[in-house]
């Protein structure tokens, strides 16, 4: 009974944390591009905060190999622009800040960029709890089997 009450209290605390949580997720890092006559990039964290004043490395892709083409730093809004090398249409861009890394491949030759399909955030949270319950269940099943054998 006591154990049940304790679990109830903990569950309530978690629920409280979850409901007071702002709807803005954090800390996945992104980088995206806008093409004009130069390539303009923006780097940001999940939730929209720009990755500002962070080192940027631009690699030109030559025969499937990355060759360092340019190095720079994003501005305070997370933007960075560079002029593409004549004749080279594929670039890999890497932005890093305090251990976070965002990467993207740019292909100036094709007009449509493939977009990664992704589950909405709430679905990912639910999925995480699903895994946890599964793990807990498996652990308890194992424990009860062990207990039965012991008795």
């Amino acid at each position: 009974m006591n154990a049940k009450r304790g679990i109830g209290i903990l569950a309530l605390l978690v629920l409280l944390c979850a409901t007071t949580m702002p709807a803005v997720p954090a800390h996945r890092a992104f980088v995206g591009e806008v093409v004009d006559n130069e390539v303009r990039l923006k780097a940001w964290y999940e939730g929209g905060d720009p990755i500002n004043e962070a080192p940027v490395k631009v690699y030109a892709v030559d025969d499937g190999k990355d060759v360092l083409y340019l190095e720079g730093v994003t501005n305070e809004d997370g933007f960075y622009s560079f002029e593409p090398e004549p004749g080279v249409t594929a670039y890999n861009v890497v932005v890093e800040q305090m251990g976070h890394r965002a990467k993207m491949n740019i292909d100036l030759g094709s007009s449509d960029q493939p977009q990664e399909a992704e589950l909405p955030l709430y679905a990912r949270i639910v999925a995480g709890f699903g895994y946890l319950f599964g793990l807990a269940g498996a652990g308890m099943l194992y424990a009860s089997r062990k207990g039965q054998k012991g008795s």
């Binding site: 154990a3 944390c17 964290y45 905060d49 990755i51 305090m98 995480g128 946890l132 424990a143 207990g147």
Partner: peptide, 29 residues
Amino acid sequence: IAEQIPKLSIMTGAFFVASLIHVSVGPTS
């Protein structure tokens, strides 16, 4: 450990979602 599984899973759940609660400070978040 078996006795602690419920407590473990709930705390792990809290840890799992905690990283979504973010604050933007200066140049990073």
